[in-house]
């Protein structure tokens, strides 16, 4: 294995295909994507049980498969990337194109993904369709190479900070380590407290916001996690559906 894996299983994938299993236990996609990216396109089209089977590996970064005749643990430290349409016709938010069943259809469609799974996804981004006007624009000056430089710098900051702790990146921060390494300034702490109240953040959501904010601060080269970093992290948090 020379490069980090990228796995994109089709949404018809079964539970043994995704988390591992079978008569003779084989690693699933989540283990084959270990230390890489697991990309699930058309997320709501996956079977519900299959998606929810990802909860444990996403939390513990390994998957324990228990069968009557064997018990096997595979590593499963993946970065989950998922994409989905907002509703069945795909035009929610564009009144001219949306079908007559919006927004009810969107609520049903999005409800196919369980809250606990969504809660484990740190960055939620609503992506608008690319307009024809965008296509005639010149290509962006910034490509993967430039972004990779910034990412690399941020990761080096993390390794320097976490040296000797056995942790690798901000994603590994938990409990005490998170409190120690993600030091907030007063304004940031206040914003976080307010947001936790207003957005009704779960405990998991709270720690995840902090990790993301720590990373955003690293990308900005900032030692402390400031208000602006927490604000950006909060903007990626999924809002509970509004009625």
């Amino acid at each position: 294995m020379r490069t980090r894996p990228f796995r994109a299983p089709h949404h018809s994938a079964s539970m043994p295909a995704l988390v591992g299993g079978g008569l003779r236990i084989r690693p699933g996609e989540v283990s084959l994507a270990h230390l890489g990216v697991l990309f699930l396109d058309e997320l709501p089209e996956f079977q519900r049980a299959v998606l929810d089977s990802l909860r444990q590996p996403l939390e513990t970064r390994e998957v324990s498969i228990a069968r009557a005749n064997s018990h096997v643990t595979f590593p499963a430290n993946v970065q989950l990337v998922a994409a989905m349409n907002p509703c069945r016709c795909g035009h929610l938010g564009d009144a001219a194109l949306a079908c007559g069943r919006a927004p009810r259809c969107a609520a049903d469609y999005q409800a196919k993904i369980s809250g606990p799974l969504l809660d484990r996804i740190d960055l939620h981004v609503e992506v608008q369709a690319v307009s024809a006007a965008d296509l005639v624009l010149p290509p962006p000056s910034e490509g993967s190479a430039e972004v990779a430089l910034r990412v690399d710098a941020a990761r080096q900051l993390q390794s320097a900070r976490l040296a000797g702790t056995g942790l690798r990146t901000n994603a590994d921060l938990d409990g005490d380590a998170l409190a120690a390494f993600a030091s907030r300034d007063a304004a940031g702490q206040k914003l976080l407290a307010q947001a936790a109240e207003a957005m009704r953040l779960s405990a998991r959501g709270y720690t995840r916001i902090l990790r993301v904010a720590r990373t955003i601060a690293d990308l900005a080269g900032s030692n402390d996690v400031g208000r602006i970093h927490i604000a950006e992290a909060l903007s990626y948090r999924r809002q509970a559906p509004r009625n």
């Binding site: 960055l123 609503e126 992506v127 296509l135 962006p140 990761r155 993301v212």
Partner: peptide, 19 residues
Amino acid sequence: KMVKGQETAKRALEIAAAG
């Protein structure tokens, strides 16, 4: 470079890759 627009999505990717 092949992606036009979609700045928030690209930013989210960058954060995900960094952390």
